[in-house]
Simulated scan of single mutants.
Amino acid sequence: MKEDYQLHKFTKGLTGLAVSLTVLAAGFLSPFTAKAAEMDVKVQVNDDLVRFPDAQPFLDDNHSTQVPLRFVTEKLGYEVDWKKVGNQVTVTLDNSHHTVTLISGQKEALIDNSPVTLDTPPQFQNGRVYVPLRFLSNTAGIPIQWDSSSKLAILSNDGQHHAPDYQVFESTAYSADPSENGGFGAFDFLGNRLAVGTVAVDPSVIPLGTKLYIEGYSYNGLPQGGMIAYATDTGSSIKGNRIDIFIPGSKQALRSYGIQKIKVYKLSE
């Protein structure tokens, strides 16, 4: 749906909190290899959505949000230090004058060597220790709110109230057909090959190169639940709060996508 696409598009550019716990080292996926990451439960720090590249938050049996600790604490600005002993890693986070020790599967924890009981225990899954977000926020003294409509936990690290950081956009779909791409075929405005996760935007609304998380669409040619996307394409008909989503397939087949309302979150690197 990007008819009358610009012909020059292809030439545009080929106090200290110390937390000790058992956890395995985190790994990161590079851009354009992790576009299909699902984020059923999401975490926002102030106005920024936290990206979890390879281990996602989830609601446990007690309806508590469990999060991979490292990604949240880095977003909160903690200095992270860790050392591996055997198959265990001791992680230290500097931001106040407390020492918190957590063990996966146990509700008992230590804060400055004083025992406390958690409402729900940390969990070890797929090589990661997940920590109850509420416990982490309470220990650090950071207010937290829950937006049930988007399954979004918002940490107010600055003490201010923050609304869910997404906007509702109209979305359409386009293919690699040259008639939808200014005659150039399977390349975006920045010269990248079109792939799942490529979206066309109005650069005055979403700057080119912005990393996004989008959800709310319904189409079996896209990742279920939601996906990481990159604003690397434009189109003469893409104006205002509208996004065109690239989907592999024929121009005719993609007409069934129609026009759908989606939620769009901007992700910082």
Rank of each mutant, 00 (worst) to 15 (best):
M39L: 15
G141A: 01
M227A: 12
D244N: 07
E269D: 15
D119I: 02
K9Y: 08
Y219I: 04
K75Q: 12
T198R: 10
P143A: 04
G105K: 02
Q167F: 04
I154C: 06
G197A: 00
F32I: 13
Y217P: 04
D48K: 13
K42A: 03
L267R: 13
W82Q: 05
L212D: 03
S236C: 11
D40Y: 11
S104T: 07
A176W: 01
L7F: 05
D48N: 11
A186R: 11
I228Q: 11
H161N: 14
K12F: 14
N138E: 14
N192F: 10
G185V: 10
L118A: 02
F10L: 15
R193N: 09
P207L: 14
G86Q: 09
K9T: 14
I262M: 13
L69G: 08
K84S: 10
D112Q: 00
N46Y: 03
T101V: 14
G105D: 01
G258T: 09
F246H: 01
W82I: 06
K263T: 09
N192P: 00
T99N: 14
G185A: 03
V264F: 04
L7G: 10
P31V: 11
D177H: 01
V89A: 15
W82C: 06
P31Y: 07
L254K: 02
E108D: 07
D188A: 08
K84F: 02
D112T: 00
I103K: 08
P121Y: 02
D60I: 12
L17D: 10
D60C: 07
A173C: 00
V89I: 11
P115Y: 01
T15N: 06
K107M: 00
L118T: 01
Q44I: 00
D158Q: 10
T33N: 08
I111A: 00
E3V: 14
G209D: 03
T11C: 12
T90Q: 06
H97R: 13
Y78L: 15
S64W: 07
K42R: 13
G197D: 03
T22A: 06
Q106H: 08
T232M: 09
Q260H: 15
F71G: 02
L21M: 10
T210P: 01
V100M: 04
A229Q: 07
R70C: 02
P207N: 14
K35S: 14
A25M: 12
L152W: 01
G225P: 07
N113G: 04
I154A: 02
G235M: 05
H8A: 09
G77I: 12
A200L: 13
T90C: 01
L118W: 00
K239D: 12
V23L: 08
V72R: 03
N62S: 04
G86C: 04
Y166W: 03
D54M: 12
L222A: 15
M39E: 09
V196I: 13
N95K: 12
D94C: 08
I238R: 06
D81G: 07
Y219G: 04
Y130P: 02
G77Y: 02
N126H: 07
T198Y: 12
V205I: 15
V50S: 06
E215V: 09
Q6K: 14
N138D: 11
D165V: 10
F52M: 11
V100G: 01
G86M: 05
I206Y: 00
T120G: 06
V80H: 14
N46P: 04
T92K: 07
G159P: 05
G27L: 09
G221T: 03
H162G: 00
P31W: 05
P223R: 07
W146L: 08
D94M: 08
Q260V: 15
G240Q: 06
E215G: 05
Y5N: 15
